[in-house]
Design a protein around this nucleic acid. Structure first.
Lengths: 212, 212
DNA sequence: ACTTTCACCGAATCAGGATTCGGTGAATCT
DNA sequence: AGATTCACCGAATCCTGATTCGGTGAAAGT
């Protein structure tokens, strides 16, 4: 009778698959995608090398499986806050919410984010397809900025450039911040970034600088 | 008599070495460090594979040679603008100068910057020795920020975090911007970054946001 | 109970690229 | 001129990891 409690056969397989995914997540987060060998994953999961290919056709497919999780996370987080027309990034609370969402996704799925980042960087700089993805990631930001510009708000520069700069900052910062040693509090980081992006170094009360 | 015009033997060797460096610079800039094989370099330079090792002991050493150039460039550019005590990053002109220098170095030496960036990213995320370098790169920024904080200026957050964010932005932006297709004007970029970093999205005249 | 299936095993195999090696000939030295 | 050096050549080697393969035994099917 298949499925009394969960067919032992399938159950064990699923367990193994999960163990492999867990191991991959852990190792990707610690050493990155590039520095993680298949044998590291299987060893950490407590399986033999060959078992890996019982569950994934390649290392890349494993990455895709993790990536799917990430996309779900993004969808869940970002769903419903899509319409630029209804938001104002110069409003601190709204800006913070818009930063908090992607930042949380990046942090919660750090291993995948790292893996993706590494494969992006490993590709051709600039015009690789990978960077098209970044532009898509920053697409929402850019739409917001363009909307602001349309409304007459004076941006620091070309919306695409500004969006790219902000996106690059988030992405790389996530990578550069240690996961193990004193990982700074996420809320703290979001608050800092909010203020930095909103008002810059000068701070909210600043006015144009003049002599003396 | 060695050295009538430049011993032909040495001259040719130097020429080959230069050709290899040129090729490497070019290819690193186009495809990145990781995607450039030794054979690509030698082929581009019009030499045989083995010749490479007549001039460099390894691919990594070649990178170091290029890196040395980069460091010289940094020294040349940044020399003399070292003393945080005498500068004020909330002054737009000073901030712009401080951004312009490293940005110019990154752009002028894009291939090396890219190679370095790639090897940084290829290493362990977060706590790799490579990121210590980034922190050193952003060291000056951080000193400035700390000085500002000492003087009572209210920064958006922890100086190290802010410096890391800014450094990450510069580094990745350089990587993400295409070198070939419509490379945006450097001055333009610097102006934009200056305004973005100084005043953020809100712009110079902004005041704390309140309801509609 | 008997057969079939399939997750698992771990030792080979493969592939991509860096590095090495054994010439070769022109420049340099005597 | 004759001996020696050394940049250059390109095929062969080595290394590192991903991927494949031929068992093996317990679960699932009959």
């Amino acid at each position: 009778m298949p499925q009394e409690r969960a067919a032992t056969r399938k159950a064990k397989a699923a367990e193994t698959r999960a163990a492999l995914l867990d191991a991959a997540r852990r190792l990707f987060g610690e050493r990155g995608y590039l520095n993680t060998k298949i044998t590291d994953i299987t060893a950490t999961a407590g399986r033999a090398t060959g078992s890996f290919y019982e569950h994934f056709t390649s290392k890349e497919e494993l990455l895709k499986a993790l990536l799917a999780e990430l996309e779900d996370a993004v969808d869940a987080r970002v769903a419903g806050m899509e319409h630029p027309r209804e938001h104002d990034l110069t409003n601190r609370d709204q800006l913070r919410d818009h930063l908090a969402a992607p930042w949380a996704v990046l942090r919660d799925n750090r291993p995948v984010a790292i893996a993706v980042f590494q494969s992006m960087v490993a590709d051709d700089p600039g015009s690789g397809r990978a960077w098209r993805d970044l532009r898509e990631q920053t697409h929402t930001i850019r739409e917001h900025l363009e909307y602001l510009a349309e409304r007459g708000h004076r941006l620091p520069g070309d919306p695409e450039l500004v969006a790219a700069a902000i996106g690059a900052m988030l992405l790389t910062l996530n990578y550069a911040l240690p996961s193990t040693a004193d990982p700074p509090d996420n809320d703290q980081v979001v608050e800092t970034l909010t203020d930095l992006i909103l008002h810059g170094l000068a701070g909210p009360t600043a006015r144009p600088q003049d002599e003396g």
